[in-house]
Design a protein around this nucleic acid. Structure first.
Lengths: 336, 336
DNA sequence: ATGAAAGCGCTAACAC
DNA sequence: GTGTTAGCGCTTTCAT
């Protein structure tokens, strides 16, 4: 018999005990003598017995499963997040069922499908949760935690988020400290709240320095978009001496566009990114960036999750995680 | 009552039918009148009923779950593979339980934990399956498919693999056709069979052209390793005019090292990578590479899996997927 | 401390 | 075509 069909009955017979004793042998702290437990565990081991989580899940309200919705596992940031999340969940004895959620419709459909497995909780690193879905999950008492995603309506869901606004401000301070006075922003796609917050923080700090609102050009979060935006922004007069890109991918694109335009980075133009993706370390020059603290983000999200696993009625909470400035070669002091 | 605790009994009562009718309403092709099915589905919808996969899994031998072991979800290639796999599995109505498998021990431990959920099959994009584990899974009748991983013992497990040797040969042909006569290899970590096959294919093609065995230097699959290897190889006399790197990460590192050494790419040295990671398209110059056909790899692996889901006794099979040459700016014809 | 028995939510014979 | 019934493998009272 294949060991996956070994039941507690088989183990019981082999150990010469009743089936309930087998069950108890696997629950720490259950009323059972050490001698019997020893005997049962040995028999179980010999037969290759693994308790069936499906039978167990039918009885308990706990399945040990969490739904993990990801928008795009191939994105460099999400990939790192996912990897960390995996080991974190493992140490919590939670098994993630992955849900591809390229858009809100896929999210809804995917979560509906995992609902059959009665996950103990749901982690979303994907598209914004449609409000109706969020409400339903809340009514059902399923804890939901957003990871680096803005809730549709602030204050309705637990969320761990990079402090994008503070990151934008800190990057502005870095560039201003280097002496830059003409700075411009390459923004994200319209409607992306993270990019908007980054740009807002940046703009606020620049205005505070008495330099007016920095010009902004959308770059759609892609290297191509960043390249196009950079090409457009360097036509401004006076020409910006520093570019804040709302993510690293666009900054990488901007680097190529500037080189193509015959401008040197950082001598002629400083370029700063946001995110801290690995590719930024290998570019020429290496990218100065506001690195998201992914480990801290994962810790915060899992913290939020376990708290709600224990008490589903905990109120929504937002945990902001500060990003870290990584100074590399793409920004330098203004020389004139 | 939270909709996750709605049972088929509740639906039955509301629809005024027996519980088995509810069960039938959810199985297509079951003996039930259209009228009743309508009524049941409406009642189910009103109550927010989702059949409990745990109860279902207890009866059937099918759980709809597959174990998906990944070595490093943050690696650019694995991340893309994972993303494609997700949508592929979704269309097969299979839900992946992810297992972090940074090494063989983690793989064993992780798979042992998912065994409780009785996955229908297991996909491994992780470390080489320890032979003992492989044997056990085979005895248990659990289909295992390796995705871009070499089996510990060839011919024991179903596997979908990039044709690394053919890729190495094809890249050699590309460089030879450009007129290069002094080529060198930046190899992977010792013991990595994929890198060995790439280097072997490359070397074979070079020898066939009557140029002797190309010199090789290990680069450990990292940008830093690639940089160090490139720095060492350009000291050779005659200096190599082309470098084949056994992966793109090392090629990216080589690019920086060559630039640092005052050599131009591709004018002085051509550099070729292997893998086709996204970052290769943004580098300066963009990287010529042997791109793994990830979509085809995923299709092959899922094909292998579904066949074994239907018949677990299918013999092991190896599906080689040819990589594709992506000519970009880092390789050029030799000019003397 | 141990065993017997009920039942979690569902499917699949089996009667009607 | 529909309802009834017997479990799937486990946990958990409840007796003993």
């Amino acid at each position: 018999m294949s060991r996956r069909h070994v039941t507690s009955h088989n183990v019981a017979r082999r150990a010469g005990v009743s089936q309930s004793v087998v069950s108890r042998a696997f629950r720490p702290g259950a009323p059972i003598s050490e001698a019997l437990r020893e005997k049962v565990l040995r028999a179980a081991d010999e037969l290759g017995y693994t308790p069936n989580a499906f039978a167990r899940g039918l009885l308990h309200r706990r399945t040990g499963l969490v739904g993990l919705a990801v928008e795009d596992a191939s994105h460099p940031l999400q990939a790192v997040l996912l990897d960390r999340l995996l080991t974190g969940l493992e140490s919590l004895s939670l098994a993630p069922i992955l849900v591809a959620a390229h858009d809100a419709a896929a999210l809804s459909a995917g979560l509906a499908r995992v609902e059959a497995y009665r996950p103990d909780g749901i982690l979303v690193c994907g598209p914004t949760l449609p409000p109706a879905l969020g409400t339903r999950l809340r009514e059902d008492g399923v804890p939901v935690v957003l990871l680096n995603r803005y809730p549709a309506e602030p204050g309705t869901t637990a969320v761990a988020l990079t402090d994008n606004r503070a990151g934008g401000e800190a990057m502005a301070c870095h560039l201003l400290a280097l002496g830059h006075r003409h700075v411009a922003i390459i923004g994200g796609p319209p409607g992306a709240p993270a990019a908007a917050d980054r740009a807002a923080g940046f703009g606020a700090a620049v205005r505070r320095a008495g330099l007016g609102s920095p010009p902004e050009h959308p770059g759609h979060y892609s290297p191509e978009g960043g390249a196009a935006a950079a090409a457009a922004l360097i036509l401004l007069r006076p020409r910006p001496t520093a570019l804040l890109c709302c993510n690293d991918l666009m900054a990488l694109g901007a680097l190529s566009a500037l080189r193509a335009a015959g401008l040197r980075v950082p001598e002629d133009v400083s370029v700063a990114g946001f995110d801290g993706i690995a590719a930024g370390a290998w570019s020429a020059p290496p990218l100065t960036t506001m690195q998201q603290d992914l480990p801290a983000l994962v810790v915060a999200a899992l913290d939020l999750l376990v708290a709600r696993l224990a008490d589903p009625d905990l109120p929504p909470e937002t945990r902001l995680v500060a990003p870290l400035l990584r100074e590399r070669g793409s920004t330098a002091a203004l020389t004139t």
